[in-house]
Simulated assay, not measured.
Amino acid sequence: MTPLIAFGEALVDMLSNRLDGAADDIPETFTPYAGGAPANVAVACARLGMSSRFLGMLGEDRFGDFLVEELARHGVSVEDIRRTREARTALAFVSRDAQGERRFDFYRPPAADLLYRLAHLPAGIFAEPTILHLCSNSLTDDAIAETTLSIADIARRGEALISVDANLRHNLWPDNRVDIGRVTALLDHAHLLKLSREELEALRGDHDADTWLQWRLAAGVRLIVITDGPAPVVVHRLGKVIHVTPPEVTAVDTTAGGDAFVGGLLAQLAEADVTAATLGDWCQDETRLRDAIQRACRCGAFAVTRPGAYTALPTRDDLDNMR
């Protein structure tokens, strides 16, 4: 089974006890949950039986300690996490509406994860076959963007299978303006690309969606998966588009839904020992691809029925017992 490496931010989600629009006569409190999109994917894969490790920088503070402990508790290797006193671990205050949809208020920058540099990367980390997972939140300032794109270059040269989730958070960017060119550069390092429908609309600009997607495939992306909440997932590969309907569930907290989906899909690729070189051929079997997307949808559906991130991610037993 191919191991996973996830690089980027691990942070603490401070989840509100109160839904948006609810009566405000109850004092608002926040419960800390371990989170951060790439860290969530590392945990999702570990809980599904993959060998999984996380690369990133955390502060030498109580929240950094909390994240290291939670990652390790869920089976993720933490030996390559770096710690710093120069900045604190990032926080995200999360409020929800009645449908479980979230609003984030980030305490970043400054934050420790933005201080990771290429010098912190373990030597030879991509010498063996691996899956590398990345997100766009490690592009929000020049230095961490340079590090992230350099890691993607090194992994690509090492023939790693690269997974990218756009995971756009506009309020993490200066003046709430996403650098679309920078994000697109990361997307075009990917072999597997996951987008939400809203992210596709934001990134394509004035271009037709189908044309923009074809450009990504021409750049070397082998599989593009577009999620849209409870609506059907749209899957693009060379010469074919398929639609997969996710299970119907009542959402409580959508925080880890997309990350659970990605982890579920990557776990299946890892189990089949799919590589960057073989992903295109693997995708040509439509029955196999449809089954893999459906199982990934089950992972996402399971996660949104529970609060928090790491604790909401399914195990194999959870999926087997899911109605």
Rank of each mutant, 00 (worst) to 15 (best):
L149K: 03
L193F: 04
L48Y: 03
A39T: 15
V94G: 01
E198N: 07
C135Y: 04
G280R: 05
T287G: 15
I26E: 14
R316W: 15
V233M: 02
I125F: 06
H207E: 15
L114S: 09
D320V: 15
T245N: 12
C135P: 05
R47W: 00
I5K: 03
S16T: 06
E101Q: 10
V225N: 00
M322L: 12
I131W: 02
G21Y: 02
A92G: 08
E86C: 03
L121R: 04
A152I: 03
R316E: 15
G264K: 08
I154C: 12
D97C: 01
F106K: 09
R222K: 12
R237Y: 00
L238V: 13
A34I: 07
E79Y: 03
A143E: 15
A34S: 12
R156T: 06
I5L: 04
R182Q: 14
A190G: 01
T148P: 04
T275R: 02
V244Q: 03
G308W: 02
R82K: 13
E146R: 07
W173F: 13
I242V: 04
D285K: 06
E286I: 01
G300F: 00
F93Q: 06
L115Q: 14
L11G: 11
D285C: 09
V233K: 01
P232D: 07
V76R: 06
T255Y: 14
D285F: 08
P3S: 09
P230G: 07
A270P: 10
V249Q: 10
A119N: 11
G75P: 07
F63A: 08
A90E: 13
D24G: 12
T245V: 03
V68P: 13
I26V: 14
L55K: 11
G300W: 00
P110K: 02
G56R: 14
A251L: 11
T31I: 05
P110L: 05
A202F: 10
I242G: 01
R108K: 13
R197V: 01
G229S: 06
K194F: 01
D291M: 09
R177E: 13
D188S: 13
R157T: 10
T2N: 14
A160E: 03
R323D: 15
H189F: 13
D97P: 01
K194A: 01
D208Q: 08
A10R: 10
T315Y: 08
D253A: 07
T89V: 14
A72V: 09
R62K: 08
T311Y: 09
D25L: 08
P247G: 01
A123G: 11
T84V: 08
D153V: 04
L48K: 05
L195N: 06
R108Y: 14
G264R: 04
E198L: 10
G239I: 00
L289V: 00
E101F: 05
D65C: 03
S52A: 09
R62S: 14
D65Y: 03
K240E: 04
P314M: 08
R18L: 15
A209L: 07
V76I: 08
